[in-house]
Nucleic acid binder design. Structure first.
Lengths: 195, 195
DNA sequence: GTTTGTGGCATACCGCCAGTATGCGACTGA
DNA sequence: TCAGTCGCATACTGGCGGTATGCCACAAAC
Protein backbone atom coordinates (compact mmCIF):
# COMPACT_ATOMS: atom_id res chain seq x y z
CA UNK A 1 0.00 0.00 0.00
CA UNK A 2 0.92 3.63 -0.21
CA UNK A 3 0.44 4.12 3.44
CA UNK A 4 4.13 3.45 3.13
CA UNK A 5 4.94 6.77 1.50
CA UNK A 6 2.98 8.62 4.13
CA UNK A 7 4.88 6.88 6.90
CA UNK A 8 8.18 7.69 5.28
CA UNK A 9 7.28 11.35 4.90
CA UNK A 10 6.20 11.54 8.53
CA UNK A 11 9.53 10.06 9.62
CA UNK A 12 11.52 12.55 7.53
CA UNK A 13 9.49 15.43 8.90
CA UNK A 14 10.01 14.31 12.49
CA UNK A 15 13.69 13.82 11.82
CA UNK A 16 14.06 17.36 10.46
CA UNK A 17 12.34 18.73 13.53
CA UNK A 18 14.39 16.83 16.09
CA UNK A 19 17.72 17.18 14.28
CA UNK A 20 17.09 20.91 14.09
CA UNK A 21 16.12 21.26 17.74
CA UNK A 22 18.66 19.01 19.42
CA UNK A 23 21.20 18.09 16.78
CA UNK A 24 21.98 14.70 15.29
CA UNK A 25 23.77 13.20 18.29
CA UNK A 26 21.08 14.13 20.79
CA UNK A 27 18.17 12.83 18.75
CA UNK A 28 17.28 9.18 19.33
CA UNK A 29 15.64 7.03 16.68
CA UNK A 30 13.02 5.90 19.17
CA UNK A 31 11.96 9.47 19.74
CA UNK A 32 11.89 10.33 16.05
CA UNK A 33 9.73 7.27 15.41
CA UNK A 34 7.50 8.13 18.34
CA UNK A 35 6.92 11.64 17.03
CA UNK A 36 5.95 10.13 13.68
CA UNK A 37 3.56 7.78 15.54
CA UNK A 38 5.34 4.61 14.46
CA UNK A 39 8.10 2.44 15.91
CA UNK A 40 11.75 1.94 15.16
CA UNK A 41 10.77 -1.08 13.09
CA UNK A 42 9.02 1.18 10.59
CA UNK A 43 12.04 3.46 10.55
CA UNK A 44 14.40 0.64 9.68
CA UNK A 45 11.96 -0.59 7.08
CA UNK A 46 12.36 2.69 5.20
CA UNK A 47 15.94 3.69 5.98
CA UNK A 48 19.18 1.78 6.24
CA UNK A 49 20.12 3.51 9.49
CA UNK A 50 20.45 6.83 11.26
CA UNK A 51 22.80 8.26 8.65
CA UNK A 52 20.43 7.41 5.83
CA UNK A 53 17.58 9.08 7.71
CA UNK A 54 19.71 12.18 8.19
CA UNK A 55 20.51 12.20 4.49
CA UNK A 56 16.81 12.09 3.66
CA UNK A 57 16.17 14.93 6.10
CA UNK A 58 19.07 16.85 4.55
CA UNK A 59 17.59 16.49 1.07
CA UNK A 60 14.14 17.40 2.34
CA UNK A 61 15.43 20.68 3.75
CA UNK A 62 17.51 21.45 0.66
CA UNK A 63 14.61 20.85 -1.71
CA UNK A 64 12.45 23.29 0.22
CA UNK A 65 15.13 25.95 0.31
CA UNK A 66 15.98 25.63 -3.38
CA UNK A 67 12.37 25.88 -4.47
CA UNK A 68 11.80 28.99 -2.37
CA UNK A 69 15.04 30.60 -3.51
CA UNK A 70 14.27 29.88 -7.16
CA UNK A 71 10.84 31.42 -6.83
CA UNK A 72 12.31 34.50 -5.20
CA UNK A 73 14.69 35.39 -8.02
CA UNK A 74 12.62 37.62 -10.29
CA UNK A 75 15.46 38.19 -12.74
CA UNK A 76 16.40 41.84 -12.42
CA UNK A 77 17.86 43.59 -15.40
CA UNK A 78 21.01 44.85 -13.72
CA UNK A 79 23.32 41.92 -12.89
CA UNK A 80 24.47 43.61 -9.73
CA UNK A 81 20.90 44.10 -8.63
CA UNK A 82 20.31 40.44 -9.24
CA UNK A 83 23.39 39.47 -7.28
CA UNK A 84 22.26 41.67 -4.42
CA UNK A 85 18.76 40.18 -4.48
CA UNK A 86 20.21 36.66 -4.48
CA UNK A 87 22.43 37.53 -1.53
CA UNK A 88 19.53 38.86 0.50
CA UNK A 89 17.33 35.88 -0.32
CA UNK A 90 20.08 33.47 0.66
CA UNK A 91 20.79 35.22 3.95
CA UNK A 92 17.09 35.29 4.76
CA UNK A 93 16.81 31.58 4.07
CA UNK A 94 19.88 30.86 6.16
CA UNK A 95 18.06 32.23 9.16
CA UNK A 96 15.68 29.28 9.03
CA UNK A 97 17.04 26.94 11.66
CA UNK A 98 16.65 23.69 9.66
CA UNK A 99 18.89 24.92 6.87
CA UNK A 100 21.55 26.29 9.19
CA UNK A 101 21.68 23.35 11.52
CA UNK A 102 21.06 20.39 9.22
CA UNK A 103 22.63 21.54 5.97
CA UNK A 104 25.32 24.04 6.92
CA UNK A 105 26.52 22.91 10.33
CA UNK A 106 25.89 19.20 10.84
CA UNK A 107 25.81 18.14 7.19
CA UNK A 108 29.56 17.88 6.63
CA UNK A 109 30.14 16.26 10.02
CA UNK A 110 27.39 13.63 9.87
CA UNK A 111 27.60 12.77 6.17
CA UNK A 112 31.32 13.31 5.86
CA UNK A 113 32.69 16.22 3.90
CA UNK A 114 32.85 14.32 0.63
CA UNK A 115 29.25 13.12 0.66
CA UNK A 116 28.08 16.55 1.80
CA UNK A 117 30.00 18.14 -1.04
CA UNK A 118 28.47 15.85 -3.65
CA UNK A 119 24.92 16.19 -2.36
CA UNK A 120 25.19 19.95 -2.09
CA UNK A 121 26.00 20.27 -5.78
CA UNK A 122 22.38 19.48 -6.60
CA UNK A 123 20.87 22.03 -4.26
CA UNK A 124 21.79 25.35 -2.69
CA UNK A 125 25.47 25.27 -3.53
CA UNK A 126 24.51 24.46 -7.12
CA UNK A 127 22.39 27.61 -7.13
CA UNK A 128 25.26 29.76 -5.91
CA UNK A 129 27.67 28.31 -8.43
CA UNK A 130 25.35 28.62 -11.42
CA UNK A 131 24.52 32.14 -10.34
CA UNK A 132 28.22 33.06 -10.30
CA UNK A 133 28.72 31.24 -13.60
CA UNK A 134 26.10 33.42 -15.27
CA UNK A 135 27.77 36.55 -13.93
CA UNK A 136 31.05 35.37 -15.42
CA UNK A 137 29.48 34.55 -18.75
CA UNK A 138 27.84 37.93 -19.18
CA UNK A 139 31.07 39.66 -18.22
CA UNK A 140 29.89 41.15 -14.96
CA UNK A 141 32.74 39.52 -13.09
CA UNK A 142 36.00 38.08 -14.32
CA UNK A 143 36.59 34.38 -13.92
CA UNK A 144 40.26 34.59 -12.95
CA UNK A 145 40.30 31.34 -11.06
CA UNK A 146 37.83 28.51 -11.80
CA UNK A 147 34.25 29.37 -10.95
CA UNK A 148 33.96 26.22 -8.91
CA UNK A 149 36.68 27.25 -6.49
CA UNK A 150 35.34 30.76 -6.29
CA UNK A 151 31.86 29.44 -5.58
CA UNK A 152 33.18 27.29 -2.72
CA UNK A 153 34.86 30.26 -1.07
CA UNK A 154 31.84 32.50 -1.54
CA UNK A 155 29.52 29.80 -0.21
CA UNK A 156 31.69 29.56 2.89
CA UNK A 157 31.45 33.30 3.39
CA UNK A 158 27.67 33.16 2.99
CA UNK A 159 27.36 30.36 5.55
CA UNK A 160 29.57 32.13 8.07
CA UNK A 161 27.54 35.28 7.55
CA UNK A 162 24.32 33.38 8.20
CA UNK A 163 25.70 31.94 11.42
CA UNK A 164 26.86 35.36 12.51
CA UNK A 165 23.42 36.84 11.93
CA UNK A 166 21.59 34.03 13.67
CA UNK A 167 23.74 34.34 16.78
CA UNK A 168 23.78 38.12 16.90
CA UNK A 169 22.18 40.25 19.60
CA UNK A 170 20.59 42.35 16.87
CA UNK A 171 19.97 40.09 13.86
CA UNK A 172 18.37 42.80 11.71
CA UNK A 173 21.31 45.13 11.98
CA UNK A 174 23.83 42.34 11.62
CA UNK A 175 22.01 41.09 8.54
CA UNK A 176 22.49 44.45 6.85
CA UNK A 177 26.16 44.49 7.83
CA UNK A 178 26.78 40.99 6.53
CA UNK A 179 25.06 41.87 3.26
CA UNK A 180 27.29 44.92 2.89
CA UNK A 181 30.44 43.00 3.69
CA UNK A 182 29.60 40.29 1.15
CA UNK A 183 28.72 42.79 -1.55
CA UNK A 184 31.95 44.68 -1.04
CA UNK A 185 33.94 41.46 -1.22
CA UNK A 186 32.23 40.48 -4.46
CA UNK A 187 33.12 43.85 -5.95
CA UNK A 188 36.70 42.73 -5.97
CA UNK A 189 35.79 40.32 -8.74
CA UNK A 190 34.98 43.04 -11.24
CA UNK A 191 38.16 44.40 -12.72
CA UNK A 192 40.00 41.13 -13.35
CA UNK A 193 43.73 40.69 -13.00
CA UNK A 194 45.64 38.41 -10.68
CA UNK A 195 48.41 40.64 -9.39
CA UNK B 1 52.43 14.83 42.10
CA UNK B 2 53.04 16.15 38.67
CA UNK B 3 52.66 12.77 37.12
CA UNK B 4 49.18 14.17 36.88
CA UNK B 5 50.07 16.80 34.31
CA UNK B 6 51.85 14.24 32.19
CA UNK B 7 48.78 11.98 32.21
CA UNK B 8 46.55 14.85 31.26
CA UNK B 9 48.80 15.86 28.38
CA UNK B 10 48.90 12.27 27.12
CA UNK B 11 45.11 12.13 27.17
CA UNK B 12 44.78 15.36 25.24
CA UNK B 13 47.29 14.18 22.68
CA UNK B 14 45.50 10.86 22.20
CA UNK B 15 42.20 12.69 21.95
CA UNK B 16 43.52 14.97 19.21
CA UNK B 17 44.78 11.97 17.26
CA UNK B 18 41.58 9.94 17.47
CA UNK B 19 39.20 12.85 16.99
CA UNK B 20 41.18 13.80 13.91
CA UNK B 21 41.24 10.28 12.47
CA UNK B 22 37.69 9.11 13.20
CA UNK B 23 35.78 12.14 14.35
CA UNK B 24 34.21 12.85 17.72
CA UNK B 25 31.29 10.42 17.47
CA UNK B 26 33.42 7.47 16.40
CA UNK B 27 36.07 7.88 19.10
CA UNK B 28 35.38 6.07 22.35
CA UNK B 29 36.75 7.25 25.66
CA UNK B 30 38.05 3.76 26.41
CA UNK B 31 40.14 3.85 23.28
CA UNK B 32 41.46 7.33 23.93
CA UNK B 33 42.44 6.28 27.44
CA UNK B 34 44.00 3.08 26.16
CA UNK B 35 46.12 4.99 23.65
CA UNK B 36 47.31 7.22 26.50
CA UNK B 37 48.12 4.06 28.51
CA UNK B 38 45.66 4.83 31.27
CA UNK B 39 42.00 3.96 31.94
CA UNK B 40 38.74 5.82 31.75
CA UNK B 41 39.05 6.47 35.47
CA UNK B 42 42.05 8.67 34.85
CA UNK B 43 40.21 10.43 32.07
CA UNK B 44 37.27 11.29 34.30
CA UNK B 45 39.67 12.39 36.99
CA UNK B 46 41.00 15.10 34.67
CA UNK B 47 37.96 15.98 32.57
CA UNK B 48 34.28 16.40 33.35
CA UNK B 49 33.27 14.33 30.33
CA UNK B 50 33.75 13.77 26.63
CA UNK B 51 32.83 17.34 25.73
CA UNK B 52 35.35 18.74 28.16
CA UNK B 53 38.03 16.49 26.71
CA UNK B 54 37.15 17.67 23.21
CA UNK B 55 37.40 21.26 24.36
CA UNK B 56 40.87 20.62 25.73
CA UNK B 57 41.84 18.97 22.44
CA UNK B 58 40.37 21.92 20.57
CA UNK B 59 42.45 24.37 22.57
CA UNK B 60 45.54 22.24 22.17
CA UNK B 61 45.23 22.33 18.40
CA UNK B 62 44.46 26.04 18.33
CA UNK B 63 47.43 26.93 20.51
CA UNK B 64 49.77 25.08 18.17
CA UNK B 65 48.34 26.70 15.07
CA UNK B 66 48.41 30.19 16.52
CA UNK B 67 52.01 29.89 17.66
CA UNK B 68 53.13 28.64 14.24
CA UNK B 69 51.12 31.29 12.40
CA UNK B 70 52.47 34.05 14.61
CA UNK B 71 56.03 32.90 14.00
CA UNK B 72 55.44 32.84 10.27
CA UNK B 73 54.37 36.46 9.94
CA UNK B 74 57.63 38.30 9.40
CA UNK B 75 55.91 41.67 9.05
CA UNK B 76 56.39 42.72 5.44
CA UNK B 77 56.50 46.40 4.64
CA UNK B 78 53.74 46.39 2.05
CA UNK B 79 50.38 45.72 3.73
CA UNK B 80 49.15 43.75 0.70
CA UNK B 81 52.25 41.60 0.81
CA UNK B 82 51.57 40.94 4.45
CA UNK B 83 47.95 40.08 3.77
CA UNK B 84 49.05 37.70 1.03
CA UNK B 85 51.61 36.06 3.27
CA UNK B 86 49.01 35.66 6.02
CA UNK B 87 46.59 34.09 3.56
CA UNK B 88 49.13 31.57 2.38
CA UNK B 89 50.20 30.69 5.89
CA UNK B 90 46.62 30.19 6.96
CA UNK B 91 45.77 27.99 4.00
CA UNK B 92 48.87 25.93 4.60
CA UNK B 93 47.96 25.45 8.23
CA UNK B 94 44.40 24.54 7.29
CA UNK B 95 45.74 21.55 5.42
CA UNK B 96 46.81 20.02 8.70
CA UNK B 97 44.05 17.55 9.45
CA UNK B 98 43.73 18.31 13.18
CA UNK B 99 42.90 21.95 12.56
CA UNK B 100 40.44 21.24 9.78
CA UNK B 101 38.63 18.42 11.50
CA UNK B 102 38.69 19.44 15.16
CA UNK B 103 38.55 23.22 14.95
CA UNK B 104 36.82 24.02 11.67
CA UNK B 105 34.45 21.13 11.09
CA UNK B 106 33.53 19.46 14.37
CA UNK B 107 34.14 22.39 16.69
CA UNK B 108 30.84 24.20 16.15
CA UNK B 109 28.87 20.95 16.18
CA UNK B 110 30.39 19.38 19.30
CA UNK B 111 30.82 22.52 21.38
CA UNK B 112 27.79 24.30 20.06
CA UNK B 113 28.15 27.33 17.85
CA UNK B 114 28.15 29.79 20.73
CA UNK B 115 30.91 28.14 22.72
CA UNK B 116 32.93 27.59 19.55
CA UNK B 117 32.53 31.25 18.69
CA UNK B 118 33.72 32.40 22.10
CA UNK B 119 36.71 30.04 22.23
CA UNK B 120 37.77 30.92 18.70
CA UNK B 121 38.13 34.58 19.59
CA UNK B 122 41.27 33.78 21.55
CA UNK B 123 42.96 31.82 18.80
CA UNK B 124 42.95 31.65 15.01
CA UNK B 125 39.86 33.73 14.45
CA UNK B 126 41.35 36.36 16.75
CA UNK B 127 44.40 36.42 14.50
CA UNK B 128 42.31 36.97 11.38
CA UNK B 129 40.29 39.70 12.99
CA UNK B 130 43.24 41.58 14.44
CA UNK B 131 45.00 41.28 11.11
CA UNK B 132 42.04 42.85 9.32
CA UNK B 133 41.77 45.48 12.04
CA UNK B 134 45.35 46.57 11.42
CA UNK B 135 44.67 46.84 7.70
CA UNK B 136 41.69 49.05 8.44
CA UNK B 137 43.68 51.22 10.84
CA UNK B 138 46.49 51.92 8.42
CA UNK B 139 43.99 52.71 5.69
CA UNK B 140 44.75 49.77 3.44
CA UNK B 141 41.12 48.73 3.43
CA UNK B 142 38.00 50.64 4.34
CA UNK B 143 36.01 49.56 7.36
CA UNK B 144 32.55 50.03 5.82
CA UNK B 145 30.83 47.51 8.02
CA UNK B 146 32.18 46.51 11.44
CA UNK B 147 35.47 44.64 11.28
CA UNK B 148 34.04 41.89 13.41
CA UNK B 149 31.36 41.00 10.89
CA UNK B 150 33.79 41.27 8.03
CA UNK B 151 36.23 38.99 9.82
CA UNK B 152 33.54 36.37 10.34
CA UNK B 153 32.69 36.31 6.65
CA UNK B 154 36.34 36.22 5.60
CA UNK B 155 37.05 33.46 8.11
CA UNK B 156 34.20 31.43 6.60
CA UNK B 157 35.70 31.89 3.16
CA UNK B 158 39.11 30.82 4.40
CA UNK B 159 37.69 27.69 6.02
CA UNK B 160 35.72 26.74 2.93
CA UNK B 161 38.83 27.28 0.86
CA UNK B 162 40.84 25.01 3.13
CA UNK B 163 38.23 22.27 2.86
CA UNK B 164 38.19 22.63 -0.90
CA UNK B 165 41.95 22.28 -1.11
CA UNK B 166 42.10 19.30 1.22
CA UNK B 167 39.48 17.43 -0.80
CA UNK B 168 40.84 18.34 -4.21
CA UNK B 169 42.34 15.91 -6.70
CA UNK B 170 45.23 18.31 -7.13
CA UNK B 171 45.73 20.16 -3.84
CA UNK B 172 48.72 22.18 -5.02
CA UNK B 173 46.90 23.65 -7.99
CA UNK B 174 43.70 24.18 -6.01
CA UNK B 175 45.66 25.90 -3.26
CA UNK B 176 46.91 28.48 -5.76
CA UNK B 177 43.40 28.97 -7.12
CA UNK B 178 41.90 29.43 -3.67
CA UNK B 179 44.60 31.95 -2.79
CA UNK B 180 43.84 33.92 -5.93
CA UNK B 181 40.11 33.85 -5.35
CA UNK B 182 40.52 35.07 -1.77
CA UNK B 183 42.92 37.80 -2.74
CA UNK B 184 40.62 39.07 -5.44
CA UNK B 185 37.70 39.10 -3.04
CA UNK B 186 39.69 41.09 -0.50
CA UNK B 187 40.54 43.64 -3.17
CA UNK B 188 36.90 44.65 -3.08
CA UNK B 189 37.56 46.17 0.33
CA UNK B 190 39.92 48.85 -0.94
CA UNK B 191 37.94 51.68 -2.44
CA UNK B 192 35.33 52.10 0.29
CA UNK B 193 31.73 53.05 -0.38
CA UNK B 194 28.63 51.04 0.33
CA UNK B 195 26.48 51.61 -2.77
C1' DG C 1 -10.31 -21.39 -1.06
C1' DT C 2 -6.15 -22.94 0.58
C1' DT C 3 -1.38 -22.08 -0.18
C1' DT C 4 2.55 -19.32 -0.82
C1' DG C 5 4.79 -15.24 -0.99
C1' DT C 6 5.51 -10.23 0.09
C1' DG C 7 5.15 -5.67 1.82
C1' DG C 8 4.64 -2.95 6.07
C1' DC C 9 5.27 -2.73 10.10
C1' DA C 10 5.87 -4.14 15.69
C1' DT C 11 8.44 -6.50 19.45
C1' DA C 12 12.37 -8.35 21.65
C1' DC C 13 16.91 -8.58 22.15
C1' DC C 14 22.21 -7.52 21.83
C1' DG C 15 26.51 -4.90 22.08
C1' DC C 16 28.74 -0.67 22.57
C1' DC C 17 29.69 3.25 25.06
C1' DA C 18 29.26 7.59 28.15
C1' DG C 19 28.79 8.25 32.65
C1' DT C 20 28.81 6.84 37.83
C1' DA C 21 30.12 4.53 42.02
C1' DT C 22 33.45 2.58 44.49
C1' DG C 23 37.92 0.88 45.91
C1' DC C 24 42.73 1.44 46.78
C1' DG C 25 47.60 2.43 47.10
C1' DA C 26 50.89 6.37 47.58
C1' DC C 27 52.04 10.25 49.66
C1' DT C 28 51.56 14.12 53.05
C1' DG C 29 50.84 16.72 56.99
C1' DA C 30 49.65 16.58 62.04
C1' DT D 1 50.67 6.35 62.97
C1' DC D 2 46.69 8.01 61.68
C1' DA D 3 43.55 11.00 58.87
C1' DG D 4 43.06 12.94 54.67
C1' DT D 5 43.69 13.66 49.84
C1' DC D 6 45.38 12.91 45.27
C1' DG D 7 45.69 9.98 41.25
C1' DC D 8 44.07 6.57 39.32
C1' DA D 9 41.75 1.47 38.38
C1' DT D 10 37.71 -1.62 38.41
C1' DA D 11 32.91 -2.66 38.23
C1' DC D 12 28.49 -1.49 37.09
C1' DT D 13 24.30 0.94 34.84
C1' DG D 14 21.35 3.04 31.38
C1' DG D 15 20.55 4.60 26.87
C1' DC D 16 20.77 3.97 22.19
C1' DG D 17 21.89 2.17 17.38
C1' DG D 18 21.37 -1.85 15.16
C1' DT D 19 19.52 -6.73 14.29
C1' DA D 20 16.52 -10.72 14.40
C1' DT D 21 12.22 -12.25 14.38
C1' DG D 22 7.23 -12.39 14.45
C1' DC D 23 2.76 -11.06 12.77
C1' DC D 24 -0.99 -9.43 9.96
C1' DA D 25 -3.01 -7.82 5.56
C1' DC D 26 -3.22 -8.63 1.06
C1' DA D 27 -2.36 -10.64 -3.51
C1' DA D 28 -1.27 -13.87 -6.88
C1' DA D 29 -1.21 -18.95 -8.06
C1' DC D 30 -3.37 -23.22 -8.81
Amino acid sequence: MEYSEHTRAALVESAIELFTERGYANSSLDEIAKRARVTKGALYHHFAGKRALFEAAFEGVEIGVVSRLSAEMPGKRDPWEELRAGLDAFLRECLEEPFRRVVVQEGPVVLGYRRWYDLGERYTFGLVRSSLTRLVENGTIDSGSPVDVLARVVFGGLSAGANTIANSDDPKRTSVEVGQALERLLRGLRDGGTG
